[in-house]
Simulated assay, not measured.
Amino acid sequence: MKRAAICVIAGPVGIAAYGLVRLWGKSDEVYGPGFDWQAAHLLGLAGMVFFVPAVLALSRLLPRSPWRSGVVALTLIGLAATMVQFGADIVEGLLAADRAEMSALSADFKDIPGVEVAFYDVVPQLFFLGLVVLAGMLAAKRRLPWWSAPLLLVGIVLPVVTLDLLPIGGLCMLVALAPALPAVAQQSEPTTPPIIVH
């Protein structure tokens, strides 16, 4: 299987794994800081990283257009903001001695002007919005079934209800994107332009 197809699988799996480790960490009612917090957030961050090539690969199933470029750009901007959020959570977990100190560090970071909008409340949502729109565009071109975009939306909304539903949300995202795997696997890998030495 081509690397791009693996990334399409690994992105949602990373989100589901993040949710599962989070539930395991909460089982003793002492979640963060510590190994469970770091493991969960590293898995979530890995999922976001895998989504970058996944989004690019899925977009290549569509004809080039300003709409495609715009949706991909917004999706990647949202992804970048989400990665910063995960990175901040990881750093705060490393620096804090207990949950109260970790919450205080998080509050200090969010108090920086623009941080809450850029990395928490608004910009990260562009990733999820862009992914659903991209799935809708793929469905319109019959590269995904009609139910992929609604199922993807369900997978995104479930963790908003409660983060405990993250594993199911990740699974929904995986099932929604899975029909595109054969087409993604058939893509030729992007090539690096040759270096010309004068």
Rank of each mutant, 00 (worst) to 15 (best):
A118K: 06
V52A: 15
V72Q: 05
M102R: 12
A96C: 06
F50A: 15
M1A: 14
M102G: 03
K26T: 07
P113S: 01
R99N: 05
L105T: 03
A46Y: 11
V52Q: 13
G78Q: 13
D121C: 04
D89A: 15
D36E: 13
R22S: 14
A100P: 00
V115G: 02
A40G: 03
L76M: 02
G32E: 07
L94H: 08
E92D: 09
G93F: 02
C7Q: 10
L74M: 09
L74T: 01
L62H: 02
I15N: 09
G32K: 05
P66R: 15
R99S: 09
M48F: 12
L105Q: 06
S59F: 01
S27H: 13
A46N: 08
A97C: 02
A5Q: 10
Y18S: 14
L126C: 09
I6N: 11
A10W: 00
R64P: 00
V52P: 01
Y120Q: 10
V30A: 15
L45W: 05
V52I: 15
V91P: 00
C7W: 10
S69A: 15
P12F: 07
S106N: 10
F50T: 10
A107Q: 12
H41I: 06
L23Y: 01
L20I: 15
G114M: 03
A100Y: 01
G44P: 00
E101S: 08
S103E: 14
S103W: 02
